[in-house]
Design a protein around this nucleic acid. Structure first.
Lengths: 262, 262
DNA sequence: ATGGGGGGTTGACGCAGCGTCAAGGTCAAG
DNA sequence: CTTGACCTTGACGCTGCGTCAACCCCCCAT
């Protein structure tokens, strides 16, 4: 007769595991000897090995009991279920691995390569590191809401960098972020003028903008909030844009709040 | 300002998950509004998305905090650790899948194919189902203790089936298991005679048996116990073997207990 | 006889990452 | 005013054991 430790060693598990199987009713409690020790026979060893075989194959303990009692077809069904579950798990982990190898740099965190290229391009243009980080956080929000559309958006963004006004705008932002200029800095006005001009151009009045619905889904509110949270002076910029008839400095649609409603 | 539900929805998680991140200090608790609701800004959304990006990549929550603060090389090291851990997990599951697909029939449970073939062969010879099951459980114990050696053992076992004495022995076992014969059934004596003869042949006296140490490691005690547990009449067989000078009906070494010690 | 070391016993908490009640308070709409 | 959808804290549940704690038991050496 074996003690719990001997039984466990024979099956290659710990005594704690055996006691656990008793607790959940997977392995019947054996009789005790005079001093209260559990004493196991050979059949218990066989049962324990069967249990471990299934458990090692990835069968949850809660199902092993039924499987050991099941007949051939029921058993095979269960095997199928377990196997497809394992397949799913493996797929999940595989995709995790793919994802994680993308995360070599802290920057690519949560961003597709197009966007990180764009950010690198900004650096080449002379945009400061703080400005790039602010831009990056904004893109994280956009990507989170619109993961697929990002492929359509980025080429336009790259092309837009050919516009000297936009470059000037980024440089203004860089300067302002790195300075301790106040709300009254004239560069804020200049930035607002550029933004208004770009917005005017992007918004072709009279025509139905096909992306209008889509744009409506973009998290403009969050982007504005992000800017203000990153630098309170962004609030001034927002006010200036509102003066110029634009609802937000990231949204390219005119507001009508100051005009009478239809 | 977002409520917890809105924030969670934006990042594609549940509110409970966000609260969990607060609890473990991964995401800072935001300020509350007048009615005690948590109110989140855009930066929280960015943080949450970063957290989920790493979590989706398989990074344990407990490490995400440090990773978000880490610099490039520290970050990359962590990535390497996580990746190799993922690889291990995947391998584990892959091997589980391999194992589980082997378990198509209830019989192959915990047994390599050589052994199941042997059991099938026994059925062909006319061994009863109960006898095969008893034999199977015995092999489960042997395989558990000696998983690699089984490849060496089985060919000899197959060859041994050419010996008509062994076949007769299995048939006797089948008959006895299916009958309600008592301890005094003469077939028990016949079985003991065959066993003794086979043992005599297997044990070549005077020569040093190279497998002696190895055999010593086989779980003979358990095998004997298993037989007796399966059918109490096996005890009688053991006694008969002892009378004939053998320690156990599964062990092929003579006992010297009845002779004076050296 | 005594002491020590290596077994055994039950009971309990801990782990990861939340899901899911319970028992309320709040908010916007009809 | 009610309803339904949200928020709050607190707590247990899940998986498969690991790991104390506090105590008992057996065998061996002194």
């Amino acid at each position: 007769m074996l003690t719990i430790g001997q039984l466990a060693a024979f099956a290659g598990v710990t005594a704690r595991a055996v006691r656990h199987y008793h607790q959940i009713g997977l392995l019947p409690e054996p009789a005790r000897d005079a001093s209260g020790y559990r004493r196991y026979g050979a059949k218990a060893a066989v049962s324990l090995i069967k249990i471990r075989t299934l458990a090692n194959a990835g069968v949850p303990l809660s199902e092993i009991g039924q499987m050991l009692e099941a007949d051939g077809s029921t058993f095979d069904e269960a095997i199928q279920r377990i196997d497809s579950h394992l397949r799913d798990e493996i797929e999940r982990l595989e995709s995790s691995r793919k994802q994680i190898t993308q995360l070599t740099a802290g920057e690519s965190l949560a961003l597709p390569p197009e966007v990180t290229s764009y950010l690198d391009r900004l650096r080449e243009i002379g945009v400061s590191e703080r400005m790039v980080e602010a831009e990056r956080d904004g893109w994280i929000l956009v990507v989170a809401r619109w993961p697929e559309r990002i492929h359509q958006i980025m080429p336009a963004k790259f092309a837009h960098l050919d516009d000297p006004r936009l470059v000037r705008l980024y440089r203004l932002g860089s300067e302002l972020l790195d300075s301790d200029a106040g709300d009254d800095d004239p560069r804020l006005e200049e930035a607002a003028d550029i933004l208004a001009g770009l917005a005017e151009q992007a918004y072709t009045p009279g025509e139905t903008n096909p992306d209008e619905d889509a744009q409506h889904e973009l998290p403009f509110g969050l982007l504005d909030a992000l800017a203000v949270e990153s630098d309170p002076r962004a609030q001034r910029l927002l006010d200036l844009m509102r003066e110029r008839g634009w609802a937000s400095w990231t949204r390219t649609r005119p507001q009508r709040l100051t005009e009478p409603a239809d």
